[in-house]
Design a protein around this nucleic acid. Structure first.
Lengths: 208, 208
DNA sequence: GTCTATATGCAGATAGAC
DNA sequence: GTCTATCTGCATATAGAC
């Protein structure tokens, strides 16, 4: 697969921005990574902000697209949770800098998000309504789906983001860390489904 | 309360580094924030790296100290979870830049952590052993406590870190966001305890 | 389109007066 | 200890030849 110069620059920029963030990235390093001259980067993207914008939008849409793709598919809560864990965690492990890059960019450059949110037509409330309906049908739960949804995202994304911290504190080898993530693909769905069942029992007990 | 110049610098440095990270922080801004001259910052801390090191160590120990404080205290899993949620989430909301600062610093400056880990005597395995024992006694669960522990941390810390993202995507006002966090202080312990009870049922069913 | 050379500004750090 | 003035290097960005 052959890349145009513009594509080479974007790929190089992704690599550098993802790892170092806006402030830590250097135009020179991006040029080197792309195997071209620094002036060419400016020729195609005019300035650092523009290039960053392109990288951020790519990252954001890719990350968000995968989430929606799974939750809007057919299947039970259990099935969705399991495929989310398997599919999304693989994706995040292969792109381990992505979530940190997104989150950190929102702290340093909050306006960046507004630009892209204006372009996308997000309907998160449809998604929540769908989950709420499934919780009712499958677990007879009449609860706010927001917390359950955020809990799931937390348990998937946080360990990826905090990986360096976890690994150092618990003194895990690379191999042990990978095993830990592999286990989570089964443990987290089990945890969530257990909680949902537990909720039901709790509710029933309260109603007696 | 009157501060020495050195303390004023450190306080100013915390403010700036926490929000902008190492690369985004400017010595000039720190000096301005402290209300003194830029040369004085160098007089006390010699260079940017030293100052950052001081800020990072302060943040890291404060963040970690709070975690241990709660989990090594007496009380049931439920009690610990509840006080962790109440106590720690309040702390994080008041210091909302801290977790992002720590996590991001580990990406950009991984060696930073090793320096401080050498100074602290962390014994996370004792903590896990304690949790494991309590899971056995209180829920008759014979499982690896690591996943449960990371799940709890995830559900507490991630929403704080991802707050700007959540708020924008779900279009929540400041007030709604605060309410959401307030709800989580009850929702997350309920979720976890439900899961632990559900686990037991699952185990019993499997053993029959 | 792609390069070399360069302009411009700013950040970290130091010298030296008080 | 605290300041003003300044050095040095580097990062973004542009000019202009090919």
């Amino acid at each position: 697969m052959i890349l145009t110069t513009e594509e080479k620059i974007l790929e190089a920029a992704k690599k550098v921005f993802h790892q170092k963030g806006y402030d830590g990235a250097r135009m020179q390093e991006i040029a080197d990574e792309a195997g071209i001259n620094k002036a060419l980067v400016h020729y195609y993207y005019r300035n650092k902000d523009n290039l960053f914008q392109a990288v951020f939008e790519d990252a954001f849409t890719r990350l968000l697209f995968k989430v929606n793709e799974i939750f809007y598919s057919t299947g039970s809560i259990l099935q969705k949770t399991e495929s989310f864990l398997g599919y999304y965690m693989d994706f995040l492990q292969k792109n381990s800098f992505l979530p940190m890059f997104i989150l950190n960019s929102l702290y340093n450059r909050p306006d960046q998000l507004k630009v892209i949110l204006g372009k996308l037509a997000l309907t998160p409330h449809n998604l929540l309504a769908l989950i709420k309906q499934q919780l009712k049908e499958e677990y007879n739960l009449d609860i706010d789906p927001m917390h359950v949804y955020i809990n799931l995202l937390s348990m998937v994304i946080f360990p990826i983001v905090a990986r360096p911290l976890i690994q150092q504190i618990f003194r895990l080898s690379q191999k042990e860390m990978e095993l830990f993530f592999e286990e989570r693909k089964k443990e987290v769905p089990l945890f969530i489904i257990s909680a949902l069942k537990g909720y039901s029992n709790e509710t029933i007990r309260t109603n007696e």
